[in-house]
Design a protein around this nucleic acid. Structure first.
Length: 308
DNA sequence: TAGATACCTTATAG
DNA sequence: ACTATAAGGTATC
């Protein structure tokens, strides 16, 4: 096991691991205490798994993986552990976007009461950069679901189809690869409680496993074309596409228009409601400051959802 | 091209 | 206990 620690003070804008991992942007990190979601915040530890492949490579895993990356925030430091032979610090810096200049992102946000309130209320919340395939599948599952239940569905997929990994005397489950998930049938997934998302997940996993398309391919495209590209996957509309772009593919201008953001638009930015998704998206992106509009989205979403 | 509707399941409210 | 409602939407018509 490799270990290390990163002083929070060294990070511009600090870090709040709890807010970062439980603000509804990622379903690929899991709590060590076995809770599905919520409960005591820091200093609980979270873990995720990474592997080599066609997705963004977060760590060069000698046997290809999966490798475990574990993180805990305690006493002003971010403590991390990783599977032997993995550069855990590099991985954790990328996964948690620790090199984002959060202070200047917040300071540079457009002058706006709601935005200012949201940034002020949730210090240290960062965007994540998750593996593309797992993000695609988990946000397909997210349709008409509560955040807490999405965690449960993703855990079910990992337990059923993911590979077991031993780490630090514990057994973990990796999120399944496209090939591993592609063996799942619609009927099986329905039995696991995915409901109408079952055929979406099955078909999309097949599409990626067969090489027909890969979500990471959208990286090469301009933003709006990338969003369009992702909608070829079954169960992926514009909103889910934006989530994948923002939380996995480094498109910081993406603003997923979910129910919370639509409510925010209705209540605070009615002039940005242009009817269609594409036009409303352009308007709110501009209002949130194009370059980091996705950061603004994440803060406003979390702010409204937590009611803080 | 825009608008309405069905869709699985479950936690929560009444 | 029982029913209605809504939950980070998408596909289809």
């Amino acid at each position: 096991m490799e270990t290390g620690s990163i002083p929070i003070d060294d990070l511009s804008g600090g870090l709040d691991l709890y807010r970062t991992l439980e603000s509804g942007q990622t379903y690929l990190w899991r709590r060590e205490d076995g809770r599905m979601y919520g409960g005591e915040p820091n200093p609980v530890a979270w873990y995720c798994t990474v592997l080599n492949g066609t997705e963004p490579t977060f760590a060069d895993v000698s046997d290809g993986g999966p490798a475990v990356i574990r993180a805990r925030q305690r006493d002003g430091t971010l403590e991390w552990q990783s599977t032997d032979g993995v550069d855990g610090e590099t991985a954790v810096r990328r996964l948690l976007r620790l090199d984002d200049d959060l202070e200047s992102i917040a300071a540079g946000a457009p002058a706006d009461p709601l935005l200012a309130e949201a940034y002020a209320a949730h210090d240290g919340m960062r965007l994540v950069e998750d593996p593309a395939f797992g993000t695609l599948i988990s946000f397909i599952c997210s349709a008409q679901m509560r955040v807490s239940r999405i965690h449960g569905m993703v855990k079910t997929l990992a337990d059923e189809y993911g590979r077991p990994v031993s780490f630090d005397g514990e057994r973990y489950r990796a999120f399944p690869t496209p090939e591993e998930l592609a063996v799942a049938t619609e009927a099986e997934l329905r039995d696991l409680g995915l409901g109408y998302r079952a055929p979406y997940v099955a078909r999309t996993a097949e599409m990626v496993a067969s090489g027909e398309a890969h979500p990471a391919d959208a990286r090469e495209l301009p933003y709006e074309e990338a969003r369009e590209y992702l909608t070829r996957f079954v169960g992926v509309g514009e909103k889910v596409a934006d989530c994948v772009l923002l939380f996995a593919l480094d498109f910081d201008e993406a603003v997923p228009l979910d129910t919370w953001i639509r409510t925010a638009i209705e209540d605070h930015y009615p002039d940005c409601d242009r009817g269609s998704y594409a036009d409303t998206s352009r308007a709110i992106r501009e209002r949130f400051g194009d370059e980091h509009a996705g950061y603004a989205q994440t803060y406003v979403f979390h702010h409204l959802r937590t009611g803080e």
